[in-house]
Structure formats: C-alpha cells, structure tokens
Computed example of a mutant assay.
Amino acid sequence: MGNALAMRLVTWNINSLRLRLPHLETLASTLRPDVICLQETKVPDPLFPAEALRALGYEHLHYKGMKSYNGVAILSRYPLTPLDRLPDWHGKEDCRHVGALVHTPGAPVELHDFYVPAGGDEPDVTINPKFAHKLAFVEEVTAWFKNRTRERTILVGDFNIAPLEHDVWSHKQLLKIVSHTPPEIERLTAWQNVGFVDAMRHFVPAHEKLYTWWSYRNRDWKTSNRGRRLDHVWVTPDLVPSLSTMTVLRDARDWTSPSDHVPVAVDFTL
C-alpha cells in the first residue's frame, strides 16, 4: 500500500468460509487487506482452514466457529493478542464475537468482530424468540461497551441492522421488516452512541444510498438494487483522523456462487 503505517481492514460476511475460500483468495490478491474480519464462517474450529489462510499471507489468526451456523474470524498480517474472557452473549455459546489487539506498526488497536443475530422474520418479541434474542443481544453488548475504555477501538461485522433511511432501498416499505424496524434501529443507535463513529458514513453522506447486502431472491440484483447496509465499521472518535478511504466491493456480488453480502474495505493511517 506504499505507506508502511497504513492498514487496510476488510469486513465480510462470507456465508461459509470453506465454500468460498477461492473468493477469499481473490479478495486477498485484489485488495491486499492487512486484516480481514469474517462472519458466518460456518466451520468448527478443528476444521478451520488455517494453512490455506496462512498461505495467503495471514499468519495471525483468531477464530471461533461451530458447525453449519455463525462463526467469526480475524485474519491478520500483523500479530494479534486475542482478547480473552469475552462474554457468551445472552448465555449462548454461539460464536458471534471475537476480539483482539492488532499490533500495527503504530500503537496497537483493539478490534472486535461481531455477527449479530438476524432475528427471524416477525418483528414481534411476543411471538418470535429470535427477534427477542436479537434485541437482547444488542442491549447486552451496549451495556458491556459502556464499561470499557473506548480508545483506539474498531468494531466491525454483520450487525444485521440497516439503521438509516438510505441504508435500505425503501425506508417506507422496510419499516416493518426485520433489520430496519424502529426497535432495532433504536438499540443499534444506542450501541453506537456509547462512543463510536460510523466510519462508512464518514465517507458517504447519510442522504446517499449505501448497501452491502442484496437478497439471493433478487435474480437481477444490480438492476433492482434492493439492497440493505447490514455490514458496518465503527471507530472510536480518536481514530477518525486516521480514516483515509472506504470501498464497498460490489463486484463480489457477481462472483460465482457469491455470498449475499459484499466485502467492505476501510483504509487507516495508523
């Protein structure tokens, strides 16, 4: 990247790491990220393809996974110190969060990678336990971050919530659809307000459309462009001056057998 103190960070819901390992190779060779945060890896730890990832240049790995569902991973060219004793959110050991100190050429940064529950189809806690779990998960995480020192910290992941009007293709039509309902938006906003800045919207103003996910149901996703911004990068205010560029890799949605999410890359001068 030219600047030795620059860090390119990518977050991506890969929707099965082993199935889409060739796509990860493409991502690594084209964008050359220094750190990649993945969600929905869907691989138990003993089967994690560590050798293949190290061969791509990611010597430092921190991951937590289970069979068929969830799973998060941090791949890094820089040394990692895993953050241990992270909570099992909502009393479930369902592999939705990993954190590590990333030892960049400057001072270390604290990095958290989240896969927030999707919440099912019905936005009603009285009949949908998945939606209740999602709201409780975000509340719990918010309370936890309130009690942490919030400096040189980056939060990324698939938060499964598109909070702003232009984070969805139709604000009016999606207000009653899980991912854009008022209870979800209120909670995500409260989490962010604990002390984080929306890095993606630092580059793209709130009045402009910004999506990272397009449903598999949309055969011609590009023409209909019925997207949502479910993937996020947040930083503590002290890191805002270090933000240099942001890219949403829309082309990845057209790769063979793609994920329904596309990678988001943010460059830092750390």
Results as ranks from 00 to 15, higher is better:
Glu51Pro: 00
Ile36Ser: 05
Asp34Lys: 03
Ala50Ser: 15
Gly57Arg: 01
Ala107Phe: 13
Gly119Pro: 10
Ala107Met: 14
Gly119Met: 03
Tyr78His: 14
Arg32Pro: 01
Glu93Gly: 10
Pro79Val: 04
Pro33His: 11
Lys67Phe: 03
Val43Phe: 08
Glu122Ala: 07
Cys37Val: 13
Gly65Asn: 01
Thr104Gln: 07
Val35Asp: 00
Leu56Gly: 12
Tyr69Val: 15
Asp34Glu: 12
Arg96Phe: 09
Leu75Trp: 13
Cys95Trp: 00
Val98Thr: 12
Leu111Arg: 04
Ala107Lys: 15
Asp45Ile: 04
Asp113Leu: 14
Ala107His: 13
Lys67Cys: 06
Leu111Lys: 11
Arg96Val: 09
Val116Met: 09
Glu93Gln: 15
Pro117Lys: 09
Tyr58Pro: 05
Gly91Thr: 07
Val116Arg: 00
Val102Ser: 02
Val72Pro: 02
Pro79Trp: 04
Ile127Tyr: 05
Leu75Asp: 11
Lys92Cys: 04
Tyr78Asp: 02
Asp88Phe: 05
Val102Ile: 14
Pro123Trp: 01
Thr41Met: 07
Asp45Gly: 08
Gly71Trp: 02
His90Met: 13
Gly119Val: 00
Val125Arg: 07
Val72Ala: 08
Ala100Ser: 14
Ala52Phe: 02
Leu38Phe: 01
Ser76Met: 09
Leu56Arg: 11
Met66Trp: 03
Glu59Ala: 15
Glu93Tyr: 12
Pro44Val: 13
Gly120Glu: 02
Leu75Pro: 06
Pro123Gly: 03
His103Trp: 12
Leu56Asn: 10
Arg32Lys: 14
Ser68Trp: 14
Glu93Asn: 14
Tyr63Val: 04
Glu51Leu: 02
Arg96Cys: 08
Leu111Glu: 03
Ala50Asp: 10
Leu80Lys: 02
Pro33Gln: 10
Ala118His: 13
Arg32Ile: 04
Arg85Val: 08
Asp84Tyr: 12
Gly106Met: 09
Val116Leu: 10
Leu75Thr: 10
Ile74Phe: 08
Pro44Phe: 09
Leu38Gln: 00
Tyr78Leu: 01
Asp34Cys: 10
Glu59Cys: 15
Leu53Ile: 10
His112Ser: 02
Gln39Phe: 02
Ala52Met: 12
Leu101Lys: 11
Val35Gln: 02
Cys37Ser: 13
Ala73Gly: 03
Ile36Met: 11
Ser76Asp: 01
Pro117Phe: 08
Ile36Pro: 06
Phe48Thr: 06
His97Arg: 09
Gly120Thr: 00
Gly119Arg: 05
Leu83Ser: 03
Gly99Thr: 06
Val35His: 07
Glu40Pro: 00
Asp34Val: 07
His90Phe: 07
Lys67Ala: 12
Glu59Val: 14
Ile74Tyr: 02
Glu93Arg: 15
Asp34Ala: 11
Asp113Lys: 02
Glu40Tyr: 06
Ala73Pro: 00
Tyr69Asn: 14
Tyr78Arg: 01
Cys95His: 13
Leu83Val: 09
Asp88Leu: 11
Ala50Phe: 05
Thr126Val: 06
Pro105Val: 06
